[in-house]
Design a protein around this nucleic acid. Structure first.
Lengths: 212, 212, 212, 212
DNA sequence: GATGAATGAGGCTTCATTCAT
DNA sequence: AATGAATGAAGCCTCATTCAT
């Protein structure tokens, strides 16, 4: 049920597979993951038959998209960790930017319960997710040690808030969405900065806390 | 606080209508507004025919639910304004609480574009929405005058953030959802409190800014 | 299954029954017999429940309408036979005029096969039909003896043609329909008048020929 | 003679399309155009989905059937005009024969008002109809000039009468229907032949008179 | 391998009939 | 007895998936 193709594909087949995933990422971002399969095929510029040859059903396609998004986000987070001298900036950069990141952060809210189960069970996705969690965790702790991120939040808190902010951009015209995001993000970042206020209720959330 | 249907209904019909709207509020909150009509009828404990007698199609039902939610939210906001001596508390109370409020705040993200148009065009909904906007606006300004709410945010910013926070509770078991909400809400409130940091980018958002 | 009410009805019930049949005659003439039962009730100014109290299902109502139409047509044909000195004129008058006659003559083409079976089986309808056939038969023979109607046609031929002419008025605005009917009727009457051309193919049709 | 669908179809799709239209012509002739779509599909030997792939809704199918019928009728009328030395015979031949002609002549009475509007609006149908009207008009005038058709009738009168005669065959077993048609047709033709009686009321009907 | 046509299950809606008021 | 609300079977149409070309 994983979408990792077992064997090397012929060059044209590979190209089609990539076109389909790219179209699906885009379509999922705009319209959610339940638009007609024919529509996805059309957007990718292939026939439905081709889509189904690469992905035996909608869940398989969703899985590939999730893998792709999480993988991209992981790569960006690693790059940010390397590039940015300041952990706070690296953290923010990890959470913003490409459509894949937006999609990755919105994943928990995107699917019907049954699909969510299938996604959770996929070993490849578990693996990428685990690495991503570790990477963000590292950044969160670094930011707390450098004194920019308040000490009483966990990775789960941070990810959850960014996830919400990105969801907030949906259903708005691009320009409006971006302005709204900028403002809300600034407010949230103010809330996340080091401060002396009272501790948050409960203990720090892990990523696991908010998804299972 | 539901918008009264134009004519008086027989007692049993009234009861069924209320059961249907209540079931729909609950179902929309859990699963969104596009679950099968038969399922909604089943949850309300009536046949599909009864559902359709009261609401000629899904849009009509959605409209009734939206009116009900916004109406409830308006009533709570007014009550909070009267009860609470402190505008900050009134504001927070206006944004929390019943399923109807949660639903009302999530409305913008809930529907397909076509449905959204229909909702926007409904005069009764426009009326309630207008009154609600005015009420929240009043609370926002009062909170800013009492010095608790930072001066550079608008009603739109506040509503948008609460809307996101409530969306974040979806798809989680109740307990988890509430804990996550508590923490994220505390962070966002810290971000919203009066402070001396730099101004937010752009100008204060109105509610209209984020919905049209 | 007959619609003849077994017992004398209370005056108000009788009135309702008559209103329903009258509304149904009218509605069937305009829209055919398969419009919604609620619509028929509405046109009659009663609730559906009342309609169903008088007629247990659509077929029962149809039966009552058929009885009413055929009965009216029979009465008119008898009156015409008495009033008109010339059989040709009596025949034409028997075939024209009231909505009930128009409906009666269009009956064969109006119903779905299953309904047609039920109508055929009703003893009361068989009785009225039989008397009507006898009456028209008498006029046809009288017209042939007086030398106005060509000798090689039967009652079935005559009834069939008038049935068609009346059907032709449907789906046209009243004025147009009547003008068209006048002209077509004149042409058909020219074809029916005594003349010396070749005999018609086959033998004269009886009413039975065209309905069973 | 069917209006060609805009693009070339795959051989199997073309075959299915033709099977569906043929089945629909047959079914409409027997049962009218409002039998269940599933039934039409079954008669054509395809699944509902296939039917809907070719015709997005019932109206689209009806349109194709109307185009097919009118197109066939036009072809026959032209062939008759060429073949028959006598216009009277050509006219009669144009009005008899195939199921498509029978259907074409019954079209005005077959549909619900809303469907009728849609049909009238279709440009392809307007075009075929226009050519057909012109062709019949020519035959009518030729028959009047050769002295066989009475001079005081118009194309509309002739078409209307044949339309009625063909409607009269419905709802009868084939054999009976044909015998009845033969006789009624002979009577009507006697009425249409040149003669010296009084002129018909009103002026000759054009085709336009009886359909718009 | 790619394509797009065919299939049929499932969701939406109407309406004949039954039943509570 | 009259009313109109409730029910659910049946028709319409869409779309996930399979299969012939």
């Amino acid at each position: 049920m994983t979408a990792l193709p077992p064997v090397r594909l012929r060059a044209d087949a590979r190209r089609n597979r990539d076109k389909i995933v790219a179209a699906a990422v885009h379509a999922f971002t705009e319209d959610g993951p339940y638009l007609p399969m024919e529509e996805i095929a059309r957007l990718a510029g292939v026939g439905v038959g081709t889509l189904y040859r690469h992905f035996p059903d909608r869940d398989a396609l969703i899985m590939a998209v999730v893998q792709d998004s999480l993988g991209t986000m992981l790569a960006r987070a690693r790059a940010a960790a390397v590039d940015e001298p300041c952990a706070w900036d690296a953290l923010i950069r990890s959470m913003s930017g490409s459509p894949e990141i937006r999609l990755a952060l919105r994943l928990p809210n995107l699917f019907q319960p049954a699909t969510t189960e299938v996604i959770r069970a996929d070993p490849e996705i578990r693996r990428i997710r685990g690495e991503l969690m570790a990477q963000i965790d590292t950044l969160v702790q670094a930011a707390q040690q450098e004194g920019t991120l308040r000490a009483d939040v966990g990775t789960g808190d941070v990810v959850h808030l960014f996830s919400l902010l990105l969801q907030g951009m949906q259903k708005m015209p691009r320009e409006v969405g971006e302005a709204v995001y900028e403002r809300s993000c600034a407010i949230v970042l103010d809330g996340l900065r080091t401060r002396r206020g009272p501790l948050l209720p409960g203990g720090p959330l892990t990523l696991r806390d908010i998804t299972e």
